[in-house]
Structure formats: C-alpha cells, structure tokens
Amino acid sequence: MFAMVSDIAHYPDFLPWVIALRIRSESEEEAVADMIVGFKGLRESFSCRVHKQRPSDVSVSYIDGPMRHLSNEWHFEPTEEGCCRVDFMVDFSFRSRVFETLAGQMFDKALRKMIAAFEARADELYGVAA
C-alpha cells in the first residue's frame, strides 16, 4: 500500500479530478510535484512536497497554489491477517471563497470518491484480500 500511495506519478491514471501531474524531483525519501486538478470547468494547479518514510508513512505538505494550506498523512500498519490497516488524514482550506464554499458542500462526497479510487487501484494492483 505504501508503494501505491507514494507512486504519485500514476495519480492521473486513477484519481478523479487529477488532470495532470509533473514531478519536479524525486528520491526515496521525498518528491516535489505540480498537480493540475479540475472539476466542472474549473482548473487549478498547485505544488506539494511528498515525504516518504518506507514502509509506514507518507505525508504531503503544501508549497503553493490556490490553497491557504494543505496537508495530508497516510499511515500504514500491517495486520495479523497479512493485510494492511490504512489511516488517512487531510486538512486544507482555500484562499478563494468560491472554492472554499464548493469544497465545503462537496467534501464528504469527494472524499468518498477518492477513497473508492484508491481502493479500486489497490484491488487492481494487489487483488482483493480473502
């Protein structure tokens, strides 16, 4: 699961609203990327730093773009059944009141759609756990 989440280059392949992604730099511990997201004719780009601590943590810190701030964290913990428990946290706010209002109205639905996209990607890459 760590490998899937930290493989940001493939986000446009499966994540809704991610139109394009350009990796500026990448190492085992860190990546810096520019992402273009779009929804219903609105498009925005932003830059972020992805911190990778294999195999347990991925965190994203905001560099610049339309947000006031953005951070998210992924924590991975193996289970006794040979599966992986995933904890995810996201915190953000937009500079634009229009985006903030849209995000507030749609946050729960959008988050569920993104989680479903990650779950479908995991099923595609690793198969469904028995």
Rank of each mutant, 00 (worst) to 15 (best):
F88P: 09
I23E: 15
W17K: 05
F14A: 02
M89G: 05
R49I: 15
V58T: 10
I19P: 00
W17D: 00
L125W: 07
L15A: 04
D64H: 03
S96C: 09
F39Q: 10
E26R: 05
F39N: 08
E81L: 13
S59P: 01
R121C: 01
I115E: 07
T79D: 14
P16C: 04
F88Y: 15
S96L: 11
P55W: 01
S93M: 07
A116W: 00
E81V: 04
M114T: 09
V58W: 02
P78M: 10
S61R: 14
F92V: 14
Q105D: 06
V128M: 03
I19S: 02
V32K: 06
F99Q: 08
I19Q: 07
H10S: 12
D64W: 00
R97V: 11
W17F: 11
G127I: 00
R54V: 06
M106Y: 06
D123G: 01
R68Q: 15
R54M: 06
S93T: 15
S27A: 09
L111K: 11
S71C: 07
F46E: 02
M89Q: 11
P16Y: 11
A110R: 01
D7A: 08
H69T: 07
E77H: 06
R24M: 04
D13I: 01
E119N: 05
V18I: 15
K40C: 04
D87N: 08
V5C: 14
V60G: 02
L42E: 07
H51C: 07
G65R: 03
Y62H: 08
M106Q: 11
I36D: 03
R121K: 10
S61E: 14
R24C: 00
Y126R: 03
S25T: 03
L21Q: 08
G65I: 14
A122F: 07
L42H: 09
R54H: 13
V50I: 15
A129W: 07
R97N: 10
A110F: 02
A130H: 05
F92C: 11
K109C: 03
G82M: 09
D13T: 02
F88L: 13
F94G: 10
I115H: 01
D123H: 10
R97A: 15
V86S: 05
E119G: 00
M4D: 14
L15I: 04
F88S: 07
A122S: 09
V60I: 15
E26V: 03
E124P: 00
V58E: 13
D57I: 04
E29Q: 10
C48W: 04
D108V: 04
F94C: 10
K113Y: 01
F92H: 10
K113S: 13
A117S: 10
D64I: 03
V58I: 13
P16G: 00
H75M: 05
H10P: 03
E77M: 09
R85A: 14
S45M: 02
S59W: 12
R22G: 03
S6W: 00
A116D: 09
F2C: 06
F46T: 10
T101A: 15
L15V: 05
A31S: 14
I19V: 14
W74E: 07
P66V: 12
F2N: 13
R85G: 03
I23T: 10
G127F: 01
V37W: 02
